[in-house]
Design a binder for these strands. Structure first.
Length: 424
RNA sequence: GUGGGUGUAGCUCAGUUGGUUAGAGCGCCAGGUUGUGGCCCUGGAGGUCAUGGGUUCAAUUCCCAUCACUCACCCCA
């Protein structure tokens, strides 16, 4: 039993996991690039005042703070913190770089940190994959976000998912319509639980929050589809965004308008989105929305923005549970054995030629019986093994063994390169 | 922040109604086969039974605390 432990909620990513991760990340990045989002990164730490006051009370509590050095450390003072998401750092970047060409479209795939209690699909360090469009009004930019969501899920091999959409302004109008404009948040947190606790559960939550029976009855009328007074603009916006998303190739059945969708973060001002895998038994795997006020908090210039975030870790949990993880456990294509001291130079020449040809190859670093060396390749899942013994060297040939089929053949170096360069 | 569950070999888990040297499968290492992986056979390494305390003639087993992990709630990706 090892005496060392990981920090709570943190994980190591071993090679067999990284191979899958990198594949997933490049798939997502490829979709982002296809839509014209340019890559960007920001530091792990921000000044604490950049982060606080943007996410709501719950969010602020979960920010990982970093102690000051020196005397401030003893006093528990803190002036920096690990980033909580990728959206607020983006807003800071936009505020600090007024010369950016607008609209500014950027993608960002980096870890974020939250001081949450870990559970299934929730970690304290996790990767988010974000795209955001800054400086474009509501409409096509929002629709592109939905399309990116959609294309990413499809590219990753998910087919049963739904993107729920709503609008913060509609929720505000809803609260006003039932005479609870000052209690919008209490109403939202209650109805947001509909999926989990059902109608009666929501009613209980509302009563607990001092909503009257009349208000509750009126609320259900609106949630069931009655037009909400004062929400006309929000409804028109959603109509437009969803229509544009359809035109961008998102299947209609994968978008669902849902007046109970709230989203936790404070900074959203307009449409909000959330992607959910059907039958996964997990919260959302991605979310986003429009935040037209956030950048103004840093720069004084009001700049509209919209974006989405995909949570890698949750996708991985589901992919592992569903066996969607490709079996590959190595990035090495060819394992070159060393038969003896006399033939070592030939093996070195072979591995060097393979590498020069762009084929990932490694050579046995520890001496040992040929069987051990082949076993080493097998254990790692390497597909091809090259053997160069005295016979091969005399014939100026290499023995290439395909570990999948067990077939082996005497080939020239060029033939080995050709044979191992591609799959099949 | 709140409430459950679980800690025995690298992994998955047995086991002990409290009693001498704590087991299995898989994995790992070596050999059978000094030019060949997977299958088979043989052998080997690896455990302060999470940690600390208590009860007892005796604790891995019972009790308490701590720590770790895990699940759920809150909230969230």
């Amino acid at each position: 039993m090892s005496k060392v432990h990981l920090a709570k909620g943190m994980r190591d990513l071993l090679p067999h996991q990284m191979i899958h991760r990198q594949r997933v990340i490049s798939t997502i990045q490829e979709v982002f690039t296809r839509y014209g989002f340019e890559p960007m990164e920001t530091p792990a730490m921000e000044r604490i005042e950049t982060l606080t006051g943007k996410y709501g009370d719950e969010g602020d509590k979960l920010i990982f703070k970093v102690l000051k050095r020196g005397a401030g450390e003893a006093r528990g003072e803190c002036d920096q913190a690990l980033r909580y998401d990728l959206t607020v750092p983006l807003a800071r970047v936009v505020a600090m770089n007024p010369g950016l060409p607008m609209p500014f479209k950027r993608s960002q795939i980096q870890p974020v940190w939250r001081a949450d209690r870990p559970q299934r699909g929730r970690f304290r360090e996790f990767y988010q994959c974000d795209v955001d469009t800054v400086g474009a009004p509501c409409g096509l930019a929002d629709a592109e976000c939905l399309a990116v969501f959609h294309d990413c899920m499809v590219a990753l091999g998910f087919d049963r998912f739904v993107i729920r959409v709503n609008d913060r302004r509609l929720l505000a109008a809803l609260a006003a319509a039932i005479g609870a404009a000052d209690r919008e948040l209490a109403m939202i947190t209650a109805i947001d639980k509909l999926d989990k606790i059902g109608r009666e559960g929501v009613n209980g939550e509302l009563r607990k929050r001092d909503f009257s029976e009349a208000q509750i009855a009126a609320l259900w009328g609106y949630l069931d589809g009655d037009p909400v007074p004062g929400a006309e603009e929000a409804e028109e916006t959603l109509d437009e965004v969803i229509g544009l998303a359809h035109a961008l190739g998102v299947s209609p059945e994968r978008i669902r308008r849902d007046r109970t969708l709230a989203r936790g973060l404070d900074y959203y001002t307009g449409p909000v989105f959330e992607t959910e895998l059907i039958g996964a038994g997990m919260g959302s795997v991605g979310g986003g929305g429009r935040y037209d006020g956030l950048i103004g908090m840093f720069s004084g210039r009001q700049i509209p923005a919209v974006g989405i975030s995909l949570g890698l870790e949750r996708l991985f949990v589901i992919m592992e549970e569903r066996g969607m993880v490709p079996p590959s456990t190595t990035t090495t294509r060819v394992w070159v054995t060393v038969f003896s001291d006399e033939t070592r130079d030939a093996s070195l020449a072979a591995v060097t030629a393979l590498r020069a040809a762009g084929i990932p190859a490694q050579i046995s670093l520890t001496a040992g019986k040929l069987g051990k060396q082949i076993k080493a390749a097998h254990k790692r899942g390497v597909r091809f093994v090259v053997v160069i013994g005295p016979d091969e060297r005399a014939a100026d040939r290499l023995l290439l063994k395909d570990m999948h089929s067990g077939d082996q053949a005497l080939l020239s170096l060029d033939e080995v390169i050709a044979r191992t360069a591609s799959d099949g």
